[in-house]
Simulated scan of single mutants.
Amino acid sequence: MPVSPTYRHVSDDPNTHADNLMGWSQLYDQLSGGGFSGEISGVCFNSIHLFRESTNLSLRQSCVVRSNGWWFGLPVSERESFRLDTRRVEEGAVAIRRGHQPFELITPARFRIFGLVISHRTLAEHLRSVLPEEDGLARLRCEILQGSAAQSSLRHLFGEILEEINRRPEVLNSAGACRAMQNSVLEAVTNLCASVEQAKGMPRSEMQHSQIVRNVRLFLLDNNDRAISVPELCTIFHVSRRTLQYAFDRVLGIGPNAYLRILRLNGVRRDLCRRETKVSVQQAASDWGFWHLSQFAKDYRTLFDELPSATVKRSESVAPQ
């Protein structure tokens, strides 16, 4: 049973970190200030990709699993929570999303998460064999499964597998051991599907606020060539300034003006780190609507704990992979 080598990537840049996750297309926006630190480690079997991701700062992550599979996400610590699109993933819950379907995560500072991607065919065949009287995949369409006991078992198994592989990488040379680990994961996921309930839906008002924030973000990314104001957003999305303020405060914990600035600063950073099309700091800042360069440099340093010129130098010093 061929297995790709295990991997481990450590990064001090959120964009590089987002690119380090195998089989995903991701875009990370740093929401809290400071120097970034992230680590991803994992292993890929024939039809299963298991990994652990750690980040030290609050992030908004735009994600797509590129394969035709299913993603399961749960915090390494049962006391941690995060947000999947418009819904909060509370303690004891597991987030789920089908491959090729874009989704967003909002994760807090000092966050660790286990991720599991299983091929659709493998999961469907296994669920049919153990749950012949029902459509097991139908349980996954709710996107969040609630069940503390099943989630705890899944978390414990993921931790044991990754720890043992890290301690004894030669275990992957055994086809029998690899098959047993994969079967254990499938069995644990099946138990989760069979024993837990769908998480309760969000209140209508909270769902509307989350949708406002998501729509604004997508609009801003599509119109990054010009500065956009809060009054303009209110007009475009037909909401009052008070509603927009409350939506951002509730979903992100920051106001829309602060978020506009953070999103644009992240855009500048991505442009400065892009090796194929180099731009000057002044040009990148102007492209994202920053006209006061000294204030821009101050805000950039506050968020990323370095000046934009340092970002350019560090990007240039990293050899293309």
Rank of each mutant, 00 (worst) to 15 (best):
C44D: 15
S4F: 06
N56Q: 11
S174W: 07
H49C: 06
K313P: 00
Y259L: 06
L140P: 01
V230E: 12
M181W: 15
A177E: 07
R242M: 04
F45I: 03
I236D: 04
N173W: 03
N15F: 09
E170D: 14
F51A: 15
E206Q: 15
L140G: 03
L172Q: 04
V318A: 14
Y300F: 15
L140W: 03
L162W: 07
S229I: 04
L263I: 13
D249R: 13
F111L: 02
P2D: 10
F296A: 02
H209V: 00
M1E: 09
V65F: 08
N68I: 04
Q26I: 07
Q30E: 11
G115I: 01
G34A: 05
S81K: 11
E125V: 07
N173D: 13
S210T: 06
R110V: 05
E133F: 12
R301H: 12
P14V: 08
H120M: 05
G176I: 06
A180H: 12
C193Q: 09
I228E: 07
V130R: 13
R112H: 08
W71G: 11
E197Y: 01
W71R: 14
T190K: 04
N20P: 00
Y300H: 12
I144P: 01
H209S: 14
A18S: 15
S58A: 15
A149Q: 13
M181I: 03
P2N: 11
R179L: 09
R97I: 06
D305Q: 08
E134W: 02
E197H: 10
S32C: 01
S317F: 10
G73E: 08
I40P: 01
V43K: 06
V3Y: 07
L27T: 09
L307A: 15
H126D: 10
H126G: 00
